[in-house]
Design a protein around this nucleic acid. Structure first.
Lengths: 190, 190
DNA sequence: TTGCAGTGTTGAAAGTAATGAACATGCCAA
DNA sequence: TTGGCATGTTCATTACTTTCAACACTGCAA
């Protein structure tokens, strides 16, 4: 009598919750305590054996923390996507640095692929990512000065880089034309 | 024993569902039939008397149709937001036309405010929005040629426009510098 | 009026999620 | 080994969502 896809949805929710919880470094009991539910509830949800109420899920997600909208932003339909038209890239950039992401979100992905466009004079400033991740890329057009730790180098077309995101790093456009870089990085652990 | 905010959340979900259902022009029974649940379920959810399961809510929303992520994108926390830092604007642009939206979504809003940046040569092409809406804006820098219906005019700094979105319209950057426009438009009715 | 079709609401019963207390397992130290 | 402490899992009970059927109401037509 029950529609079979309910189990499918419940399992999807469960797998996602487990990934997020483990990514946050929390045990079922730790998250349960913070969320005000029992560890059984989380266990059953993660195993896909129940179809949680939105209230329960909301409280649990608050302990991670993540919002319901972001949680559901990863929908099963999206995971089938393989090809992306150029205009379908998700724009996440700000200012003179344009970042176009392949896919609308990172959920379930091991990598984030970016098309980075540095306008003339674009400069990320010195940034220090706190999360444990790695990133690398290849320059497609223009030139960019890359500083990683104590090392500094101007990269041209075809040049590449790869480093640990925890190392302080900086990108600065140089030369007369915009710089385009295709990069990849492991996502921040939730 | 129960936390009082559960009822608050359930009511929030209910009010939102009712607004969306009525906006879609569906009766409780019509939506229930399409979603594979009973009208009682929808009635109780909308009244905030129950805390629906995600499976039930997902099936119901599919009949509207709207996804869970979009449904929850309107969160009570978000409605308090009044000020937005420049870098917090939501980038929704594509290609040489950058669109930065004030706020992450339109739910509960009567208007969408955009910061539009047209790169050199940027051109929207002739567009025809099917929904009943109105839009207007003021040029902040640069120059843009605007075509609305049979009328065409080049707007400079301080110039403005206002028209019905259903009228075919086109924006094309002209002159030696990028063009920046602050615009507003009424959102598509859900 | 009467009947009919539509609307949303409300009861008791059926079905299911959440609880609380067990259980099994693995790891580390004494 | 033994104990202790953490992990995730399972089961019967409790609590709640969902259903089914009935209800009250409105508008419209015969």
């Amino acid at each position: 009598m029950n529609m079979p896809n309910i189990d499918q949805d419940a399992l999807e929710v469960g797998l996602r919750l487990r990934a997020l919880r483990e990514g946050a470094g929390l045990s079922q009991r730790a998250l349960a305590k913070q969320a005000g539910v029992t560890n059984s509830t989380i266990s059953l949800i993660e195993a896909g054996k129940v179809n949680p109420s939105v209230g329960a899920l909301k409280r649990i997600l608050e302990g991670i923390p993540i919002g319901l909208s972001d949680f559901f932003a990863y929908e099963p339909d999206g995971e089938k996507t393989v090809f992306y038209a150029a205009e379908d890239l998700t724009e996440i950039g700000k200012g003179s640095l344009s970042l176009k992401q392949v896919g609308a979100n990172l959920y379930g992905r091991a990598m984030m692929i970016l098309l980075e466009t540095y306008d003339l004079g674009a400069d990320t400033g010195r940034v220090m990512y706190g999360h444990d991740a790695e990133e690398g890329g290849i320059v497609v057009s223009g030139r960019v000065e890359v500083t990683v730790g104590e090392e500094r180098k101007v990269l041209g077309v075809g040049d590449a880089y790869y480093f640990d995101s925890r190392t302080p790093h900086r990108f600065r456009q140089v030369g007369p034309e915009k710089c385009v870089v295709v990069s990849a990085c492991t996502p921040p652990t939730f």
